[in-house]
Amino acid sequence: MALHRGRGFACVNYPIGMNLGGDPSQALVHSTPDGKFMVTLSSIDLGQGMKSVTRQIAAETLGVPVSDVYVDTADSDTGPHCMGSFASRGTHRVGNAVIRAATEARTQMLQAAAEELEVDAADLETDGEGGIRVRGAPQRTISVADVAVAAQFKQGRTLSGRGIFLVPPSEVDPETGEMSPVTCFAHAAMAVEVEVDDETGMVRVIEINSAYEVGRALNPKLVEQQLVGGAWMGLSHALYETTEPYYPDRDHLPVDFNTYLMPGPGDVAPHNIAVLERPAEDAPFGGKGPGEMCANPVLPAVANAVFDAVGVRCDDLPITPEKILRGLRANGS
């Protein structure tokens, strides 16, 4: 019996969004009578941080504090259309739609402010703290709240905007099969170190080191957190989780959390991440978003690390102790 160390490497180029149907997402922005802004979406935040990121994007575009922006998501009855939270498209597609909607709302806000201040809207700027001032004459100001009141109770106009992001359709070339499925790519590289017990077949992950290029990290803590959590999911997929352990045989399928295995807090490996920022031109403030690729490279990297450690090549997941022991036996050890 011995413990074998192994190191595996994998990299990924991950497409942001997809081509099907133009991959559209929409956003609506409107001000409340007290000068706060509501962003209405039907996109889903399932923990990845969509609400935080779209809130930041809307605030930055409108020129108002983040605390004055609210995001209402996840109801396809009341929100404008969104293709969904998949294909690593949220930050990019929804973020772009929010920028367009917030830009229109900002234009209306500045027009309403111009009417109140009796100046040209082109001479106005926001201070990012809830105020609007005349460029070059900072003493001439009006608060966003007062503009909202004036617009809605005196001028009879809304401060609102509509936004949609639609990818130009790309047809498949019938001769070559060539098409442009996506608009930009995110990238990652990962090295995983494992220790494999050749008597029990158990794999222990020692350390994960990764580098991710996600465009601009719009919210660096959220990016880091999504990468850490996503790697955990990848690890779980690589080593633990399955609904059909003997597929296509249905025997021994897990029926609850006692038999559906996932790594617990004691199975977590240290994960060191380097986030590289190369803003994408067509992305909202350059942010492509981490998305699904935070889980993807873990699987091949773990499989490679196991091969490096004990010479067993597992080509179906999860890499269970049983598969490793069978592989060891097949190798004659």
């Binding site: 850490v228 996503g230 955990w232 999911m233 959390f257 996932m262 617990g264 807090p265 004691g266 977590v268």
Partner: peptide
């Protein structure tokens, strides 16, 4: 001690590290 204390609680998003 923290790892043991939360070992009866499943988390699907965070990877546990930030919770610890």
């Amino acid at each position: 001690d923290v790892v043991e204390a939360i070992s009866g609680n499943l988390c699907r998003c965070t990877g546990y590290e930030p919770i610890i």
